[in-house]
Amino acid sequence: MNKEITINGLDSINEAAKEFVNNMGDAKVFAFYGKMGAGKTTFIKAICDCLGVVDTVTSPTFAIVNEYQSDTVDYPIYHFDFYRIKKLEEVYDMGYEDYFYGGGICLIEWPELIEDLLPEDAVHVDIKENEDGTRSVKF
């Protein structure tokens, strides 16, 4: 995929998320790269809304992974935040394979900390804040 979506502000984030969801194809694992404050969590929340998640979407900073159910898709949606991972053993211990290869959608923040464990077909998503305050999402 070589797509770019511009998020002009919070008022247009849902349209950007819809465009992202419409371009997800059959991919299941999405690795979100971006600096602290780039908007990864906020964009993932909007994606979850578009996927019909009824639960409150929060950053799984301390839990590492949150699982959400959806009104519109028949599989779970997993939201990971690996920011606090200190060693890969923690990821092995949580049974990452069950998530990454289990058929659900995986939305991953801070994937650079577990890069070696990402599936080969994981979609690399870059989120960057532009000087004018907009965000660019490239995937």
Rank of each mutant, 00 (worst) to 15 (best):
Y99R: 04
T61M: 05
Y78W: 01
H124I: 09
V91R: 09
E112L: 02
N23L: 05
E4R: 15
V123D: 04
N8H: 10
F30V: 04
N66K: 04
E15C: 11
R84I: 15
A46F: 00
K86W: 11
E120F: 01
D71Q: 11
K138T: 15
L51S: 10
F43L: 11
N22A: 13
T134E: 09
T56A: 14
D81P: 00
Q69D: 14
P60E: 05
Y96P: 09
I13A: 07
G37H: 08
V29F: 02
D116R: 08
E90P: 10
I44G: 04
V65N: 03
G34W: 01
L51C: 06
N130P: 07
D11F: 15
Y96R: 06
M36Y: 03
D55Q: 08
Y75H: 10
E120K: 06
D93F: 12
C50E: 13
N23I: 08
K35L: 08
L113G: 02
M94R: 03
T6A: 10
P111S: 05
I7N: 02
V54H: 14
H79Q: 02
G52N: 09
T41S: 08
V137L: 11
E67D: 02
A63C: 01
T61H: 02
Y83M: 07
D116A: 14
F82P: 05
E15T: 15
G104K: 03
D74I: 14
Y92F: 15
D121A: 15
E129F: 04
E90I: 10
D132H: 13
P76Q: 03
C48A: 11
A27S: 13
T41L: 03
D116S: 14
K3G: 11
G102L: 03
G37M: 07
K3D: 13
F43Y: 01
E90M: 05
T6Q: 14
V54F: 15
R84C: 14
P76N: 07
K87N: 10
A31S: 13
P119I: 07
T134H: 08
C48H: 10
D26T: 13
E90S: 13
M36G: 02
F43G: 03
F20A: 04
E4K: 14
M94I: 12
P76F: 03
F30D: 04
D98I: 03
F32I: 01
N14W: 04
V123Q: 02
D49Y: 01
Q69V: 13
K18T: 13
L10F: 12
K87A: 08
D126C: 15
T134C: 15
V65M: 06
I85K: 08
Y33A: 11
N22G: 10
P60K: 05
V54P: 04
F80I: 10
L51H: 09
E112A: 04
F62C: 02
W110D: 00
F100R: 03
I7M: 12
A16E: 06
T134I: 12
G104L: 01
E67G: 05
N23H: 10
Y99W: 03
E112Y: 00
T72Y: 00
